[in-house]
Amino acid sequence: MKGHEISEKQRNRIKVKFPPEKKPQVGRPGKSNREMLNAILYWLNTGIPWRDLPERFGPWQSVYSRFHA
């Protein structure tokens, strides 16, 4: 676990605040709420532009759209 990522204990405390994850009917499955939250925390902690998010978080546009939803 990296410094900007949430632990399992932290995730269990806040998971009720997130909408339930849905399985897509078609296409590629989306990232989990936890993965998206870790990407947003990374962005907030580093102050980098959205486009510079590491590839391990997936497309920056997906993280951006979840943040602004």
Rank of each mutant, 00 (worst) to 15 (best):
P24N: 14
H4I: 01
I14E: 05
R34L: 11
H68W: 06
S7W: 06
H68P: 00
G47E: 04
H68G: 00
A69S: 13
F57K: 00
P59M: 05
R56H: 13
L53V: 00
F18D: 12
T46R: 11
R34V: 11
H68Q: 11
K22R: 13
M36T: 13
R51E: 12
K15D: 08
I14C: 09
S32V: 02
V16Y: 12
P54Q: 04
R13A: 11
E5S: 08
R11F: 09
V63Q: 05
V16M: 09
F57T: 01
V26R: 14
F18I: 06
G30K: 15
G30D: 09
R51S: 08
K9C: 00
F57S: 01
V26S: 15
L37K: 12
P29C: 11
D52T: 03
Y64G: 01
K2P: 00
P29Y: 15
Q61L: 13
R51H: 05
K23C: 03
P29S: 10
G47T: 08
S65E: 14
W60V: 00
G47W: 06
E8L: 10
K31V: 00
Y64I: 01
Q25H: 09
G58M: 03
Y42L: 05
V63S: 09
V63Y: 02
Y64P: 02
S32F: 05
N12G: 04
